[in-house]
Nucleic acid binder design. Structure first.
Length: 838
RNA sequence: GCCCCCGUGGCGGAAUCGGUAGACGCUACGGACUUAAAAUCCGUUGUCCCGUGAGGGGCGUGCCGGUUCGAGUCCGGCCGGGGGCACCA
């Protein structure tokens, strides 16, 4: 009987679905302590068709899920849809399909694809963030944050498209132009909604230390993003203003070298300072130019500045130092003002050189020599010089000492600052959660009362792609009575960043249909935090940081008892494939490409192959349907996990797929033999290999080393092939069990073919007996002076005496030692003997 | 510029603690089966040298050096590739 996956797979998919094998009762399941396991794949944006690259993520999660099921864990594995977002709106504009219709259609297609891969989710917990039953609680969360001062309205510079009359996300700005209409994007100060994530900067940073099962790389990226730095604020008196200007510095030890001061053009004291300046109009024009530049343009312009003509007093040297304006000073970091120490800072040095400002070195090398400027090292290699009370102190001590002096004098304070900025959540977009706020002429900003939630997103809006957010044109939505005074008022028409939706969805899976509250505290505390979170590295910063932030705010509201939402995190790598470019660099559709002498051509034109992430626009996606029709989902699953370590990028190879198919075919045919196979003695080699394999596969799955777990199963299968006539039934069944997470359909079929009852999914994972793993004999490699000179074989367990006896009886090895004196013998138990001779 | 990660056959990769480098798979080549092809199965496959042969020997994990009886693995310095942040004072 041939191995025909297309006949087997739909049958088992249907049976698992009918038996609802993945459904969890959150109240009654997982009673025993330690039995609950919350598995979660990051919920996807429903963009439509899934390719084999997407498959890696979900197949991986399903393999882990099935493994834990077989280990007897009560595993919850839900799935949902991050269903708000721009692509749906763009599709609506382009094709006049409603975003909701488009989104729900995509969800159906993707669900069907998950089923064809044999992936088991608890669909009774399904959520879609675009539905009122979900975004109701998004709005509720917003109101709680608003109540606690963690959501606020403030102004921020944003990307503004003057033609489409809308704000654009940074990703929608390509080379300074609007992605859709090509107009030059402007920077505008607009009133926007923010979440005060900066209030949690220190806790988000410190919490990273507790995440021992997160990849170091992700923690590092978050740490850099939060950008903690220790330093001090210092006040520099400004006689002209009558009040001092405060600067932030991480190098207060260099304050004796501060020879000028630079303010951001946005600094609040700037208008006063340039009063009566000689070229005031020119300076104002320059300020306007700088403020309208995007961050990128501002940086590319190089360092530019203007003197204000006013001075500040260096509080340590008591010298008058000039106050400049500079485009390189960031208004949103520190105080928007800095003391410039050109001798010991690259940027200050460049600025001072450009404008002829004084440079004074205040650090010497430990040797006493003058360092080459700018000298910026912050360690013991430098010693303070020309610096009064800190003269002679190494830099680290000088920093501590000068901060103490600054604090004693009451002109500043040592503190920690972060580069993390508040989270801008406003979007002037239709397809998102409406922000539940109302503008009343009398009462100002009024939150929508909780009992009036959800503020429903109206579905009857036109999609023109022009004139900004269609919500603001929807009279019935916009016009509302003020909840406080009843007078005519206007609704907020901004919607929320979709990262808000995904910042807490993992909490909603426990009670997705509850229309009374966001979640049930008792059940959430039972099932969370998420034990195993799986998703792409592209979410290493934003999504994971926002989820950690929101979880902490809920903790502080007393709604949950934990602060970190994800205990163990895994980021899988992308799958790449060759695509083809022509000489002009455009991607060429696959059906126009022919290979001659192994090189790609289109007609007579030579093409260039390039390996990239799969993408429709590069014509290098592998759709799973054809693959499944030919080889089956089990083959795709095994190949996908075998191809490379799962966290690494992997190149798809059509030939490689065949290897996985052949392996499954061999296991299939072997099963037919086992079904009517021999009884009698089990070969010792088979028993040994079985226990070794159980041991290896178990620990490798736990460590997410699926590629080597599968290679261990291939080794066992190869050995069973050599013993095909013998009694190998026990080992073969163990092989099926261990193969189940990777090839669930075929193993279920074989399991029932061997006459077993029930699903293999719920069969018990085999346990290795370490006594039966041992070899009968141990081969000892003998090295003389570090060179391999022979082997001896002794009965296990090998003792030093047995090995030495065997060595002395081995003529060949003795020849190498002959005539020399043995000075040392090193015996590594079970492995190696090394004889050192002279 | 700063920070992080990675360099092993023709390819993807393996080597848990420093202990016989190249498991497992792909490709390629040779063979079996077949009228033929596909599929399947068997064998060879790091490299050089000696030997008709069984077999034996040298070299080999980006480069240079160090530690060690022994280094893909540890340490120092280079070279190459990838990623993150990017005027954060």
């Amino acid at each position: 009987m041939q191995y025909r996956p297309t006949e087997i797979e739909p049958k088992w998919q249907q049976r698992w679905a009918e038996a609802r094998v993945a459904d969890v009762n959150v109240e009654s399941d997982a009673q025993a302590p330690g039995s609950k396991l919350y598995m979660l794949n990051m919920f996807p944006y429903p963009s439509g068709d899934l390719h084999v690259g997407h498959g890696r993520n979900y197949i991986l999660g399903d393999a882990v899920y099935r493994y834990y099921r077989m280990q007897g864990r009560a595993a919850l594995n839900p799935m949902g849809w991050d269903a708000f977002g721009l692509p749906a709106e763009n599709a609506a504009i382009k094709r006049q399909i409603h975003p909701r219709t488009w989104t729900l259609g995509n969800i159906e297609r993707m669900k069907a694809q998950f089923a064809r891969w044999g992936i088991l989710y608890d669909w009774s917990k399904e959520i879609a963030s675009c539905e009122p039953e979900y975004y109701h609680w998004n709005q509720w969360l917003f109101l709680q944050l608003y109540k606690r001062g963690l959501a606020y309205r403030g102004t921020a510079p944003v990307n503004w498209c003057p033609q489409d009359l809308t704000v654009l996300a940074n990703e929608q700005v390509v080379d300074g132009r609007c992605e859709r209409c090509g107009a030059l994007v402007e920077q505008r100060e607009l009133s926007q909604w923010f979440f005060r994530i900066t209030e949690y900067a220190d806790r988000l940073d410190a919490g990273l230390d507790t995440l021992t099962d997160w990849p170091e790389k992700v923690k590092l990226m978050q740490r850099n993003w939060i950008g903690k730095s220790r330093g001090t604020d210092v006040e520099f008196p400004v006689p002209y203003l009558g009040h001092p200007i405060r600067v932030f510095t991480t190098r207060p030890d260099t304050i004796f070298g501060a020879t000028f001061m630079v303010l951001a053009p946005e600094h609040p004291d700037v208008q006063k300072l340039i009063e009566g300046a000689e070229y005031r109009e020119e300076i104002e024009a320059w300020i306007t130019t700088v403020r309208n530049q995007s961050a990128l343009e501002r940086q590319e312009a190089g360092k530019e500045g203007r003197p204000t003509g006013k001075t500040a007093i260096n509080p340590f040297t008591n010298e008058e130092i000039p106050i400049w304006l500079g485009n390189f000073v960031l208004p949103q970091y520190g105080t928007g003002a800095l003391m410039a120490v050109p001798a010991h800072d690259e940027r200050d040095f460049a600025f001072a050189t450009q404008y002829g400002l004084p440079i004074r070195s205040v650090i010497k090398l430990t040797s006493g020599d003058e360092p080459e400027l700018p000298f910026t090292a912050k360690d013991e290699t430098g010693v303070a010089a020309n610096s009064g009370p800190i003269d002679g102190l190494p830099v680290p001590q000088a920093i501590d000492r000068i901060i103490a002096i600054i604090e004693e004098r009451g002109i500043g304070k040592g503190l920690v600052r972060y580069r993390l900025r508040d989270w801008l959540i406003s979007r002037q977009r239709y397809w998102g959660t409406p922000i539940p706020m109302i503008y009343c002429d009398q009462d100002g900003l009024v939150p929508v009362p909780e009992e009036q939630l959800p503020v429903s997103l109206p579905l009857d809006v036109p999609f023109t792609g022009r004139e900004g957010n269609p919500l603001s044109k929807h009279e019935a939505f916009v016009n509302v009575a003020c909840p406080q005074c009843g007078a005519a008022a206007k609704r907020e028409t901004d919607t929320m960043d979709t990262f808000v939706d995904s910042s807490w969805y993992f909490l909603r899976f426990i009670t997705p249909r509850d229309d009374q509250k966001i979640f049930d505290r008792k059940l959430v505390d039972k099932w969370l935090p998420v034990d195993q979170y799986i998703g792409g590295i592209e979410h290493a910063i934003l999504h994971l940081l926002y989820a950690r932030f929101v979880t902490r705010t809920l903790h502080d509201m007393g709604l949950i008892s934990f602060e970190e939402p994800f205990t163990r995190l895994f980021n899988q790598g992308v799958i790449t494939k060759e695509g083809y470019k022509d000489a002009s660099g455009s991607w060429v559709p696959l059906n126009e490409v022919e290979h001659r002498d192994g090189k790609p051509y289109r007609g007579e034109e030579a093409l260039f192959a390039e390996v990239t992430k799969m993408s429709k626009s590069r014509f290098n996606v592998v759709p799973p349907d054809e693959l499944i029709a030919r080889y089956g989902a089990d083959t795709e699953r095994v190949y996908t996990l075998f191809i490379a370590p799962p966290e690494k990028e992997a190149a798809w190879s059509d030939e490689g797929v065949v290897g996985a198919f052949r392996f499954l075919g061999r296991v299939w045919h072997m099963g037919l033999g086992v079904a009517n196979g021999a009884s009698g003695d089990v070969p010792a080699a088979v028993t040994r290999k079985m226990h070794q394999t159980i041991d290896a596969v178990t620990s490798r799955i736990e460590r997410f080393e699926f590629n080597t777990a599968i290679s261990a199963l291939m080794e066992l299968s190869n050995l069973l092939g050599e013993h095909a006539g013998a009694n190998i039934r026990e080992a073969y069944e163990a092989l099926l069990k261990m193969l189940h997470p990777f090839a669930p359909h075929m193993t279920e079929e074989l399991w029932s073919m061997l006459g077993n009852e029930g699903f293999l999914l719920t069969a018990k994972w085999p346990v290795a007996d370490s006594a039966l793993m041992q070899e009968d004999t141990v081969v000892i490699a003998v090295q003389v002076n570090g060179k391999l000179r022979g082997q001896v074989e002794v009965a296990a367990p090998a003792s030093e005496e047995k090995v030495k006896e065997a060595v002395s009886g081995n003529e060949k090895i003795q020849n190498w030692v002959a005539g020399k004196q043995i000075v040392k013998q090193i015996y590594v138990p079970g492995k190696l003997l090394n004889i050192v001779v002279k």
